[in-house]
Amino acid sequence: MQNTRVNAHAMPAKQDGTILTLQEVTLRYDNVKVLDNINFSLNAGQILTIIGPNGAGKSSLIKTAIGLISPQAGKVIKKPGLRIGYMPQKISINAQLPLTTRRFLSLNSRKADFSDAVKRLDITCLLDTPIQGLSGGEMQRVLLARALMKQPELLVLDEPAQGVDVVGQAELYHLLGELRDELHCGVLLVSHDLHIVMAQTDHVLCLNKHICCHGEPESVSQHPEYLHLFDPKAADDIAVYTHDHDHSHDMHGDIVKGSKQSCSHP
């Protein structure tokens, strides 16, 4: 845990086999270094979370990992024929394109059987909505559903918790854990919030253009590099407001049926 650079061997190689390896990857945009000598690998059934401040190159890293961007130096090695489900941070669709959620999900897939994914993410009621009319959180779930339809061996999510409240995030991460167990897929996700990611993740990679530190969630949160990056002073300024609701919300923010509810509206 003391190295600031990780090499491919540093991670425990499970029996499952590696599905993705990055070797000494360096990426520049117009001569500005965005990623510097990145090494890591991901096994099937493993959840790897990338954390880091704004502009740390998190999105660039996963775009490089799945081949959307070619790095100037280094190698990205994927298992041959790897099926990737990718959930981008956000997509903006031209308002001039008449497209329902249903059509978006069935687009360019042969079988177009999205009933499982739709049920799982609870988006049945959104199927006939124009895709441009979805809220941020709804769009995220639709994108995740599309990623799931491919039965991915590698699930890549760019800030999946964005625009979802804390309870929704917990639910989302719970779902990711379930999916990992069911599909036995590798999960690569980006987050800027270490605290909530922790429970489900196997490995955390703290990024600020280079890999600052990495390891099991608990060890990373103690690591001086991490503490330095997420300024402890800032942490002091943000207190966690603990309070108990007597009802619970689902990912929509709707109140879950059957949960106690004291604030009944007339």
Binding site: L68, P88, L97, N108, L143
Partner: peptide, 19 residues
């Protein structure tokens, strides 16, 4: 038609899906 439409929706998504 279908792959072109997916490119209209999002370049990155289309590329990630192998188009």
């Amino acid at each position: 038609w279908q792959p072109m439409l997916l490119c209209v929706i999002d370049q990155n998504l289309a590329k990630a899906e192998g188009i």
